[in-house]
């Protein structure tokens, strides 16, 4: 569907995007993650045809962006970062203008606007001017704007920015729903959001792709080691250390905390390809310790993200 090859963008001498290549099949929800200034927005802007890349190619279906810019613009719906609309226009007038410019025939226009206003929860503000709306409502106007022509590809730049938690859940629902049939690309720096919404995640840092994979795979790949935390009573750290260390696959044991009333918290680091929870439990049972807490730390994208982006920043 979308084929990006060696995409590079220079702002004067500053390289914002450095040789990004991506293949995005139809119907995928792709999350573009990265710290601030990583080149997310620049990449998205090039995909929408707002400005041309310094080098590299973008092709959507069989259309090359250099030669078929207008055609590609018709296929893409775009929500920019700060939803900058004409503040003086009424919401209805603005959507009507977008409908016209997107070439929706006059007899379908009204139904389409009605449908989108219901979908995005705008029905009660259609008669207000855009300048009066709150940030969240503005974002919804942007979403309606982006979806006007029922585009095959939806590009959203930080769609949930500035929304309250309820609205975020709603917007995510909308994105998932659209993603069933359409290709959606969105950028975010909120990891849980990407985790909850995307089929595939691409992490970029300093203009380069540092990780690219399906959300699940990426999460698994991250955990080369698994951590188990437990809290015990009636046990000393030395004893625990001696008893559990011999279990195959346990690499280290750290003391996290020990309270005066004899509660001990430890963290066991093991290789993630082995699951030693049963053995650990049996050992504890054999001793006279009281097990108060026992849980495996879930590997989140957050850890991967931090590892990947921090490492590279350190190298440079």
């Amino acid at each position: 569907m979308i084929h990006v090859d060696n995409l590079t963008k220079f702002y004067d001498s500053f390289c914002a995007v450095d040789g990004i290549s991506l293949d995005i099949p139809k119907g995928e929800i792709l999350g573009l993650l990265g710290p601030n200034g990583a080149g997310k927005t620049t990449t998205l802007k090039m995909l929408t045809g707002y400005f041309p890349p310094s080098s590299g190619t973008i092709a959507i279906k069989d259309y090359n962006i250099q030669d078929h810019l207008l055609k590609i613009k018709q296929m893409i719906g775009y929500l920019p970062e700060s939803s900058p609309f004409y503040k003086d226009l009424l919401v209805y007038d603005y959507l009507d203008y977008v409908a016209k410019i997107r070439g929706i025939p006059a007899d379908e226009r009204h139904t389409r606007i009605k449908y989108l206003s219901d979908l995005c929860g705008l029905s009660h503000v259609m008669h207000k001017s855009i300048g009066e709306l709150s940030k969240g409502l503005n974002q919804r106007v942007g979403l309606a704007h982006a979806m006007m022509r029922d585009p095959e590809i939806l590009i959203l730049d930080e769609p949930t920015q500035g929304l309250d938690p309820n609205q975020i859940v709603e917007i995510r629902k909308i994105i998932r729903k659209i993603g069933e049939e359409k290709t959606v690309i969105f950028s975010t720096h909120i990891l849980s959001e990407a985790e909850a919404t995307c089929d595939r995640i691409v992490i970029i840092n300093r203009g380069k792709i540092v990780a690219d994979g399906e959300t699940e795979n990426l999460k698994q790949a991250a955990g080369r080691e698994a951590a188990i935390q437990m809290t015990l009573a009636n046990a000393s750290f030395d004893a625990v250390s001696q008893t559990l260390k011999p279990i195959d696959g346990i690499e280290s044991i750290e003391k996290i905390d020990e309270t005066d009333d004899g509660r001990l918290s430890v963290k066991l680091i093991s290789r993630s390809d082995t699951d030693r929870r049963e053995e650990i439990y049996k050992m504890i049972k054999a001793m006279d310790w009281i097990l108060l807490e026992f849980y495996q730390e879930a590997k989140t994208l957050e850890t991967i993200f931090r590892d990947l982006t921090r490492q590279i920043n350190k190298e440079n």
Binding site: Y50, K73, Y78, P80, P84, F85, K87, I101, R102, H145
Partner: peptide, 14 residues
Amino acid sequence: SKGSYELLMTMPVT
């Protein structure tokens, strides 16, 4: 200044 130019440019207009 408002950035709506960006929106305009991503719509199918020359």
